[in-house]
């Protein structure tokens, strides 16, 4: 009887999980395996051929461009992380602790999340009229007399890239942080106040430690999205800046798939290591 129940439980689980497993096997695991295999292949100008050689990796690690581009990728990730965390935390804190009615909280929360369900490409395009040489920002600054000539670094620059990242991904911080904050027992805040803590002390010693899981989940989202990105950097920098994703997509455009695959393998390992470190601080399944 016990054995039957045991078998039943596993079989039912497998049957129900089978479609998910099939999709992930076919479109996640197999593609990763394929990329790893192809990263050892060779390429001519027009085609790729099976081989087992380390040329792609040798070239990758032998080129100073690689290190520069990886450094740039980390730089984007770090700056974007700091900005999205600051903004996201502030917004979530306001929603969770200063907005008093639940209806209002839900409404304002939705207001913050709706852009997530619209197109990223359009949201990038929408910065053009703002940042362009004759855009709103320059026109305004000139009319205020702050500057005499249009600023050239607004569009097609690191500034534009990071602005777009913050614009696109801050809500990945807001949502998990808000979610954890809503579960903080309000009596703890009262206790802190009763014990004589100032507002700032309550924030630092009570709210932030209790919000850490949400911060970690948001961090995982933002860091992986920025590190894996290739389109925001290409579009917002006018192809003048590079990150690892662009390195891969350039190789793909030149049909150099083995070289693209090798870079992809290194990128994936980097991202997974970062995630593994972050996951040590949080149990995702418990936080939902």
């Amino acid at each position: 009887m016990a054995i039957r129940a045991f078998a039943n439980r596993h079989v039912a689980g497998w049957v129900q999980a089978a479609p998910l497993a099939a999709v992930l096997l076919g479109f996640l695991i197999a593609p990763i395996a394929m990329i790893v295999v192809v990263s050892f292949w060779g390429a001519t100008e027009f085609s790729i051929y099976p081989a087992f050689q380390f040329d792609n990796y040798e070239f990758l690690f032998g080129s100073p461009v690689t290190y520069r581009v990886f450094l740039a990728t980390f730089k984007y990730a770090l700056i974007t992380w700091a900005l999205t965390l600051t903004i996201g935390f502030t917004v979530a804190y306001f929603l969770a602790f200063h907005v008093r009615s639940l209806t209002m909280q839900v409404a304002l929360f939705l207001l913050c999340t709706i852009p997530f369900w619209t197109s990223n490409i359009i949201r990038m395009i929408s910065w053009i009229p703002f940042l362009g040489r004759n855009g709103i920002a320059n026109q305004t600054l000139i009319s205020w007399g702050v500057i005499d000539e249009p600023l050239e670094w607004l569009l097609y620059s690191d500034f534009a890239v990071i602005l777009a990242f913050v614009h696109l991904y801050t809500l990945f911080m807001v949502v998990p942080i808000f979610n954890t904050m809503m579960r903080i027992d309000r009596s703890l805040l009262e206790a802190a106040r009763d014990a004589g803590a100032s507002g700032f002390q309550t924030l630092v010693h009570v709210v932030i430690p209790l919000t850490k899981p949400g911060i970690m989940i948001g961090t995982i989202f933002v860091v992986t999205l920025v590190m894996g990105d290739f389109i925001t950097v290409r579009f917002m920098s006018g192809s003048q800046r590079a990150n690892v994703g662009r390195l891969i997509s350039n190789d793909i455009a030149l049909l150099q798939y083995p070289s693209a695959a090798a870079t992809a393998v290194v990128l994936l390992c980097t991202v997974l290591i970062v995630i593994a470190i972050l996951l040590r601080f949080v149990n995702i399944r418990r936080e939902l």
Partner: peptide, 14 residues
Amino acid sequence: VIPSILISLGVGLI
């Protein structure tokens, strides 16, 4: 969390 371009590249290659 996987960079999207890996899915694109891998599926395309397969």
